[in-house]
Design a protein around this nucleic acid. Sequence first.
DNA 1: AACCAGGGAAGAT
DNA 2: ATCTTCCATGGT
Length: 288
Amino acid sequence: MWTEKIELTSIYDFDYILNRSTMEPLKRLDMEQRTIWIPVEIADEKHVVKVHGKGSIQEPKFAISSDSIAARDALISEVGNVLQWDVDFTSINEHFIGTNLEKLFFAHPGTPIVKDHGLYFSLIKGIIHQQLNMKFAHTLDARFVQKYGGQHEQVWFYPRPETVARLSYEDLRELQFSQRKAEYVIDTSRKIVNGELDLEQLATASDQEVIDTLIKLRGIGRWTAENWLLFGLGRSNLLPKADIGIQNAMKFYFELGRKPSIQEIEEMSETWTPYQSYASMTLWRSIE
DNA sequence: AACCAGGGAAGAT
DNA sequence: ATCTTCCATGGT
């Protein structure tokens, strides 16, 4: 067992990460201890990294610990990547000064992109969540993980694509997936296993290349592709305009009386580039 | 009881 | 290319 102390130079709201994590039923966390446990797979080996938040938004500090000495550096690096500890909010903050989002943005300083833990997990989660209310979506997530994933050190690991690729559509129908959703999840997993879709490689492509590649797959539209760029890769300039949460948040904040159209969203968000993702997080947060 | 939900495919124009 | 319609299922 090793422990590493981390101090960030940028502001960072770790409690927002904790709050978001409470929405996922299978995530191991301790609100009072400000601690989350993150599953990390390195070279097919399962590791659990404990992340304990200390300090404040202005002076964020962490103690992270895990058991594998050999994988220590890789685990520290991966956790920093997942939690976006390399992001410097200085230029992001400056960017929103004087924009139409300024007031809301600075009401929630240091809001990080809450990345998913794993590229495959993020993509499949996106498919499962399509058109479902959050509560039921998380219920489906939990059933899926409990049946086809595995537990290690009291932390749930997501199913592997190899496991899901071998399932029949009926297997997921039993968990109350719709027929379509079952097909999308299993067919996408099969493409990953047979090499037609390489998420690690895709992670290095441009935003536009990622979208072009993903929306060719049956079951993945623009919303799911953008969702993966944002929550899977942590890209900085995504504003899912078709997302009902974004629409509702803008309706309330700009006092529109109705949900804005895609075109209206584009007009109002012009000045947010290249940090639209941080605007998105702030908007979602504002209605949570 | 109707309408909504952090959509997408397939068909129609 | 852009617009409907249908798909499924739980939540409010």
